[in-house]
Every structure is written in C-alpha cells, then in structure tokens.
C-alpha cells in the first residue's frame, strides 16, 4: 500500500543516505522537487512547537561556495507549505506570493531550522511566515501568501 500524507502519495527522498541529526527524525514530502532537494528533518521542541530543518550539502551551494538562495527559497516554500496545509488538510493550497529576505550567508554543513507560523487563515487565503536560523543566528525571514484551491491530485 502506498504511504500517503494529506491524502497524497509520499515521494521518496533522492538521498535516503542522509541521516537526521541527533534528536531529529526524517520528514516526509509529497512534492517530487522537495524529495529531489531534501531530506528535511522534523521534531517537536521542548515548547511543544514543531520544528523543521535541512542540512546544507554540496548539491545546495552556489558559485560563491555558500548555500544557493534558490535552495533556501525552496525550503521556505516547502516548510511554510506544511504549516499552511495542516490548516486546510482537505484542500490544496498553492503559493501565490513569497517575500524572502536573506540576512546572512549559510555555509555547507550548516543546519537550517524553522518553526513556521500561520499569521491568518481566511476562507480563500492563508498568510504564513517563517524565521530561519542556523544555531542562534537569524539567516532568513520570509512571508508567503497561499490561495486555497480544490486541486488535490488523486493518489
């Protein structure tokens, strides 16, 4: 039987050899592009809040030797998406806008962590935000706007 998430088939990670850091467990994804870029990790913090992370590897860097902005924006879209989808589990919300500020360069082997926040859920739109950290350093902040749709694919 196919494993599902939000009623959609889970996509296998392209790099199942990359293990979660101590205290984290392997996340699951439904989008082939996220499976290609990840894995993502997840845990519930001591405050009861869900946290998500990925570790920067050689696939993710740019010509300057730091993590590519495109990879960071992909992780933003993926993880704010998890928080948004949990608010509309029967629908299929899609990103219509994302605003990303890159505060600090991220290097290979850094662990990028976030606790995504839903700012407002309307009937048709959901607003989300995330502050992304490497250790104690805030490295990226993003907001995104999602449109609620009924496009859910059959699994």
């Amino acid at each position: 039987m196919t494993e599902t998430m939000f009623g959609i088939a889970v996509a296998p990670w392209a790099r199942p050899d990359i293990a979660p850091p101590p205290g984290w467990k392997l996340g699951r994804v439904v989008d082939p592009f996220e499976a290609f870029c990840g894995p993502w990790f997840e845990k519930v913090g001591s405050d009861g809040v869900k946290r998500y992370a990925f570790r920067v590897d050689e696939r993710h860097i740019n010509a300057n030797g730091v993590c590519h902005g495109g990879m960071l924006m992909t992780f933003v879209d993926a993880i704010l998406g998890v928080a948004v989808w949990e608010r509309d589990p029967d629908g299929f919300p899609v990103t219509v806008g994302q605003q990303t500020s890159f505060l600090k360069a991220v290097r290979k082997d850094d662990l990028v962590e976030v606790s995504p926040v839903v700012l407002r859920q309307g009937r048709e739109m959901i607003f989300a935000r995330g502050d992304f950290f490497c250790g104690d350093a805030l490295i990226l902040s993003a907001t995104s706007l999602w449109k609620c749709t009924a496009l859910k694919p059959k699994s």
């Binding site: 959609i8 082939p32 592009f33 924006m73 992909t74 992780f75 933003v76 879209d77 899609v94 694919p153």
Partner: peptide, 11 residues
C-alpha cells in the same frame, strides 16, 4: 522539478 499537483514547484 514538479510538485504533487503536477505543476513546476514554486521553489
């Protein structure tokens, strides 16, 4: 490069 909705991923 796609998402679960068979569109190109926003990332």
């Amino acid at each position: 490069h796609l998402n679960a909705g068979h569109n190109v991923h926003g990332g």
